[in-house]
Amino acid sequence: MTRIGNSDLDVFPLSLGGNVFGWTADRDESFAILDAFVAGGGDFIDTADSYSAWVPGNSGGESETIIGEWLASRKPENVVVATKVSQHPDFKGLSAANVRAAAEASLRRLGVDTIDLYYAHFDDESVQLAETVRAFGELQRDGLVRHVAVSNYTDSRIREWIDIARSLGIPSPVAIQPHYNLVHRNEVEGAIIPIAQEFHLGLVPYFSLAKGFLTGKYRSTDAAGQSSPRAQAASAYATEQGLAIVDTLARIGEAHGVSVAATALAWLRAQPTVVAPIASASRVDQVADLLDGGRVELSADEVAELTRVSEWTPASV
């Protein structure tokens, strides 16, 4: 178990992504995935109020609704649910009124009295940051939210949020959710991890498997023939270096008896301040790999080898 920042949330070090619920996993498959995750020791679920508004026929909130129905049906103990605000079609942005209305809507869909971890999903610079910080603080004061967090914020805006919170006597964020994985490292390692270390924040990375590339499914530099948008996005990482990373993951994973995906998640867990990478499963048979990713421990030499093979230096201007 791993504590999220300086909060009282102690979780299994792998978060199940709820972005697929109501999208590539229907209600029954979503229930089966959630059942398998919890049965295997998982207890940390990540979603957002906007999931999955991009699907034709959906309007947003489908993932929260499915999770809420599952919670009501199963009544699991000690499950931590994180959700986010700012992108739902009916609750855009981070004005105080919108943050309150969106949180109340999420609570109804989830069927809970309190959201364990509530993220500002994307920064909204059209609203004074102090207004947003105060709104999140009021949700905590009123018991609607236990802890707050930020997603897709720059280091300077995170620092500004913390400064405002401290000046107002409001609890600071306990977590940051950045895009971070073996093929997308530099920005997080250069700017986000240092501020997380400074303020004792936990990282909960998304795209931990690089849209599927770090499962080992894409093993050719030829992206032609990848039909789905998701496959095309994943295959974009299939450069010579990307394939070398996957080959190294496969070799190290084989030594531990786990998959490429589990090994990639284990490397991420070994990075400073990382609490629990987020990874999703569209089928129940994919859950075991994710759980392995939360348990397998790589040696220091294995972590260092993966770090070396995935180093990337931008071309000089």
Rank of each mutant, 00 (worst) to 15 (best):
residue 136 F to A: 07
residue 99 V to W: 05
residue 282 S to P: 04
residue 315 A to P: 14
residue 8 D to R: 09
residue 95 S to D: 14
residue 295 R to P: 00
residue 98 N to K: 06
residue 310 S to H: 00
residue 17 G to V: 06
residue 278 I to Y: 01
residue 175 A to S: 13
residue 264 A to T: 08
residue 293 G to L: 09
residue 22 G to R: 08
residue 156 S to Q: 14
residue 182 L to M: 15
residue 83 T to Q: 00
residue 179 H to V: 15
residue 207 F to G: 06
residue 189 E to W: 12
residue 236 A to E: 15
residue 111 G to M: 04
residue 206 Y to R: 12
residue 157 R to E: 15
residue 118 Y to L: 12
residue 242 G to A: 00
residue 278 I to F: 02
residue 243 L to R: 06
residue 164 I to P: 03
residue 280 S to I: 08
residue 78 N to Q: 07
residue 191 A to R: 15
residue 152 N to S: 14
residue 275 V to A: 01
residue 254 E to T: 00
residue 123 D to T: 15
residue 98 N to Q: 10
residue 105 A to K: 09
residue 16 L to Q: 03
residue 147 H to V: 11
residue 7 S to V: 04
residue 195 I to L: 04
residue 112 V to I: 13
residue 77 E to R: 12
residue 196 A to D: 06
residue 164 I to N: 04
residue 254 E to K: 10
residue 127 V to H: 08
residue 47 T to D: 10
residue 314 P to Y: 00
residue 43 D to M: 03
residue 236 A to F: 13
residue 98 N to E: 13
residue 160 E to M: 11
residue 69 E to M: 04
residue 178 P to L: 07
residue 156 S to D: 15
residue 117 L to Y: 04
residue 248 T to P: 13
residue 19 N to T: 04
residue 143 G to N: 06
residue 93 G to Y: 09
residue 243 L to S: 08
residue 2 T to R: 04
residue 312 W to R: 14
residue 192 I to F: 04
residue 140 Q to C: 12
residue 152 N to W: 00
residue 34 L to M: 05
residue 302 E to Y: 00
residue 140 Q to A: 10
residue 254 E to C: 05
residue 199 F to H: 12
residue 20 V to M: 02
residue 244 A to L: 07
residue 314 P to K: 08
residue 223 A to N: 03
residue 85 V to L: 01
residue 282 S to H: 12
residue 244 A to M: 02
residue 102 A to G: 03
residue 72 A to S: 10
residue 201 L to A: 03
residue 163 D to F: 10
residue 305 E to V: 09
residue 311 E to D: 11
residue 123 D to E: 14
residue 15 S to Q: 00
residue 73 S to Q: 13
residue 107 L to W: 05
residue 153 Y to E: 08
residue 81 V to E: 07
